[in-house]
Design a protein around this nucleic acid. Sequence first.
DNA 1: ACCTGAACACCGTTCAAGT
DNA 2: ACCTGAACACCGTTCAAGT
Lengths: 243, 243
Amino acid sequence: VSSEDLPAAPRFPARAGAGTRRKPRQRTLSQAAIVDAALGIVDHDGLDALTMRTVAHALGTGPASLYAHVASKEQLIELLVERVIGEVEFGCAPDPERWAEQVKEAANNMRRVFASHGDLARASFGRIPVGANALRGAEWMIAVLRAGGLSDQVTGLAVDLIALYTMAVAYEDGLAVAGGNTVEEIVAFIGRLRKYYASLPTDRFPNVVALAGELTAGDENTRFEFGLEVLIRGLEAVSRQEG
Amino acid sequence: VSSEDLPAAPRFPARAGAGTRRKPRQRTLSQAAIVDAALGIVDHDGLDALTMRTVAHALGTGPASLYAHVASKEQLIELLVERVIGEVEFGCAPDPERWAEQVKEAANNMRRVFASHGDLARASFGRIPVGANALRGAEWMIAVLRAGGLSDQVTGLAVDLIALYTMAVAYEDGLAVAGGNTVEEIVAFIGRLRKYYASLPTDRFPNVVALAGELTAGDENTRFEFGLEVLIRGLEAVSRQEG
DNA sequence: ACCTGAACACCGTTCAAGT
DNA sequence: ACCTGAACACCGTTCAAGT
């Protein structure tokens, strides 16, 4: 869970700076306490409510005080994402016979954990995670894919692909949550979307009209599972063709 | 290109309101002029530079003036995305023999068009596009997939999946651009990332260390093409198994 | 009907000043 | 070394007032 014994991670030039205190004197404020407070705000009120001011307020202080423990809001979000990735379970040992099931299970865990933290996935997306928790996930995923018989080359590409897909779906999950919509409201919206597709002019959009039902069918889990299945079957096919 | 003859699109509750003028008196300001100015800002300085104030400044007025033609910044971005999707070419007629190539070509066009507009893909991601241009793309994609022999059910899921993947990659493309990084800086970053992976403790991350090269291999185009290939092979496999 | 200046209620971050 | 109040340079949006 701690990353202090890892070599220094490379930073993308655009991202903000690193260096904050290693061990704050733990008077009242600390990096851990700030991350805790920030996570609570994201969980309750979503990413848009996450503000240096709201975090500070939750800790009974002012926004300027946070900068002794956190370099920037950017870095705070980075810490938040690392913390949440640490909640994802990568349990069982790689089993060559069950690699597809194991990949699906891990992806589902990932999605579920992020779903339990509001729309944090939105902040996570596009970030190359280099913390200990993210590396643990990558390590496990690579082990599973290699055990499953994928070549090193395919594995190197597949890890990113699976993570990209999973986080992209988690991102979309979060959008509905962020709007504060209930399940009923979302279902109602999908219903309106289906009616809209069905009501389009048939001469210009014959296929959209014909597939209005299919385009809006399936709940989020079904659609996510479908995508995972497609990815895994595709990786199998690409692997076969390769060898 | 115009969507005025379409039925009213359903709106997700969270999104902001719709109704602005249909035909502004075209004195100096107009919705089209505002979208033009906004696109210019995104192209030159990125999405973070897009501000009601910067747009207004580019038009020689104040931010309050924009609200006569645009309901909110949210809606301005929606218009922006619709405009850009309109630049994507969906050329040739669906050819059953070449459906895979056609899907790849369209996805590449999509990615290229968004790449030419800074990091706008970030704003587009997760949005369910309901404008005429987006529908034209969906119509074409559905036609190609059906022509390729996919079932209606698989097609309904596949359209989303392909769009999700393409926009997710476009999103990531944009992140590097938004930081103002040159190609050299990005290459240098990938190099550092590879060294970082290779330098990790072998006992905890044997697979990450072993695949340091593969994890960071291939340029963005190669990786994108790989994902497309996996998706298409997977769709073929899922279709076969279904029938 | 359109446009505007001014204001409201916010942001992230800095910095001199405190302890 | 840590914490703070106040300030800086911004946001999106509203609204009364103009034409």
